Simulated scan of single mutants.
Amino acid sequence: MAALERVLKPKTKRSKRFLEKREPKLVENVKNAMLLKGGNANCTVTQALKDIYALKKPYAVLYKKKNITRPFEDQTSLEFFAKKSDCSLFIFGSHNKKRPNNLVLGRMFDYHVLDMIELGVENFVSLNDIKNSKCPEGTKPMLIFAGDAFESSEDYKRLKSLFIDFFRGPAVPCVRLAGLEHVLHFTALNGKIFMRSYKVLLKKSGCRTPRIELEEMGPSLDFTVRRTHLASDDLYKLSLKQPKTLKQKKKKNISQDTFGTTYGRIHMQKQDLGKLQTRKVKGLKKRPAMDGPESSSKKPRHV
């Protein structure tokens, strides 16, 4: 039995907190990513991993030592590192004569490999090669996808989902305009995928709305899709399943119009207005003069 699979009771408060972080939660934490390289990674793959790590920080772990493994043949080492570092996303970089400048992008489900797509890097421009200002660490990027292949091809659909899962960052309740300063653009054209990274510059426009300009800051990568390892439809559907407590219950008899006004429908039984209790006021009491016309014609007798 592996050391990570043993069931141990925590003896200290620190180990107890560590195990509580690993427990299943209704609302998941931000997905962490691990970046590791194979036994024969070259300078291009190593620098590409460092640049992607710079975009993903602080929700990433970069392994600097080489790991001799083949993800499409044996996935046990990836699953071991994923469980050790509590990461559900990974990028594995390698280089050989048959597949030069190779990056394997994938994700885990229950610490087992769910999806893997192998990408070949053809053109690469590093962050250091572009001498422009960079975005601060931890900036949440805006993701833009262009190309019909992301909607028509099943492999490209899953690759789009992988890119979104990898770069979207933490979920936030509100967005500040000045915080929207990083754009990741993915274009699918002629069997290739072009990844570009831009910094958003807000310029003066003479009115309240600023003028927006995009300045390339790197990294810049051109990908080609090679091998794929996709999960079955049943397993993929199981990974998307949410607990019942998170699902919002449908409210009956409530509707909204085009202007956002909420209307509620109330069901009531038939009411008998004759028995309706009203407020008792002295001015509404009956008087002798109101009994009828005959009573008003009679005069009191004198004794």
Rank of each mutant, 00 (worst) to 15 (best):
M1P: 14
A2Y: 15
A2I: 10
A3W: 15
A3V: 15
L8G: 01
L8Q: 12
P10V: 09
S15T: 12
E20H: 10
L35R: 05
N40L: 05
N42Y: 14
A54F: 11
Y63D: 00
F81A: 05
K84S: 08
L89Q: 04
F92V: 02
F92T: 01
S94Q: 04
N96Y: 07
N101Q: 01
N101L: 07
N102A: 03
N102R: 14
L103R: 02
L103I: 06
V104M: 06
M108V: 04
Y111I: 04
V113E: 05
G120L: 05
N128F: 06
I130P: 05
N132E: 13
G138I: 12
K140G: 00
K140N: 07
M142I: 10
S153A: 11
P170D: 02
C174G: 02
L180Y: 04
H185S: 08
M195S: 06
Y198H: 09
Y198T: 01
I212Q: 03
E216T: 06
M217H: 06
L221R: 01
L221C: 08
D222H: 09
T228N: 12
A231H: 15
T245H: 09
K251W: 08
N253F: 15
D257H: 03
H267S: 12
K270A: 08
K270G: 00
K270V: 11
D272P: 14
K280C: 04
V281Q: 08
K299G: 02
